[in-house]
Design a protein around this nucleic acid. Structure first.
Length: 243
DNA sequence: TATAATGTTTGAAC
DNA sequence: AGTTCAAACATTAT
């Protein structure tokens, strides 16, 4: 379900509930659901893969993990984790992680580390990468403190685009290539957003789940790499391992 | 049908 | 004390 761009799409889809009062709220989320009733939603925000439902004085944080889903003006035969009824429709969340953040949401997040956010700051990302020279490229791209919103698909596509081997240690990567990594983390995320909206995300994958390299026609390697052990798809011929 | 997958947190074990 | 690891959560396409 997730990766940052998908949460941005969700945020757009629920805009009609922004400013609306919660008439009823249900679900099996382990939060005080009753406190949401009769309260107005100030707005919806996102930080990386976190979906944020902002009320006056607190925020409901939703994380979809791997299998979470949502429906607008529909329900399905699954337990509702958190469901809202508004004067103009309903919004149901399933199989997600739900928690409450007290106070101002801006005190909980640094929006400059979210690749999808207008305040995204590539310079900060560069500084953070300097601090983790022994971590592999495949791991640092998934670090939400550095690249909030980047998931495994984006990771694989970014590394393929910039021709960088997933197992390269960050400290060994030339400066220009580091800059490319940071630039493409954002660029591909916005391509992801554009293609996902058109329902043609998979069509554009060049590495993720692919069998052969579109550049050299040699096999794409599938390997669980790094400390995080997420699957990487890469071309050993085209993606350079700096050492 | 069994498996693996766009993810993260927690707590035990080393 | 730091790291490593499995477990837990729960859905769906292949």
């Amino acid at each position: 379900m997730p990766e940052g761009p998908t949460i941005v799409i969700l945020k757009e889809e629920v805009q009609k509930f922004s400013g609306k009062k919660v008439i009823a709220a249900t679900g099996n989320a382990k939060i005080d659901i009753d406190r949401l009733i009769n309260k107005k939603i100030i707005n919806f925000k996102s930080w990386g893969k976190h979906f944020l439902i902002c009320f006056d004085g607190f925020t409901v944080r939703v994380h979809f993990l791997l299998f979470g889903s949502y429906l607008i003006d529909q329900d399905k035969t699954a337990q509702i984790r958190l469901g809202f009824t508004f004067p103009n429709g309903e919004f149901n969340l399933y199989a997600c992680s739900v928690s409450v953040l007290e106070g101002d949401v801006n005190d909980h997040y640094d929006f400059t580390s979210d690749v999808m956010n207008p305040h995204w700051d590539p310079k900060k990302a560069k500084a953070k990468l300097k601090d983790v020279p022994t971590k592999m490229a495949c791991d640092v791209l998934l670090e939400q403190d550095i690249f909030a919103g980047v998931g495994n698909i984006i990771k694989n596509e970014v590394l393929y685009r910039i021709r960088l081997h997933p197992e390269t240690e960050t400290g060994k990567i030339p400066d220009a290539k580091i800059r490319e990594m940071i630039t493409e983390a954002k660029n591909y995320s916005f391509d992801f957003l554009k293609w996902k909206k058109k329902n043609e995300l998979k069509k554009h994958w060049l590495a993720h789940t692919k069998k052969t390299c579109s550049r050299c026609d040699l096999p794409i390697v599938k390997k669980y790499t790094g400390v995080k052990k997420r699957r990487s798809f890469y071309c050993e011929n085209c993606q350079k391992l700096y050492s």
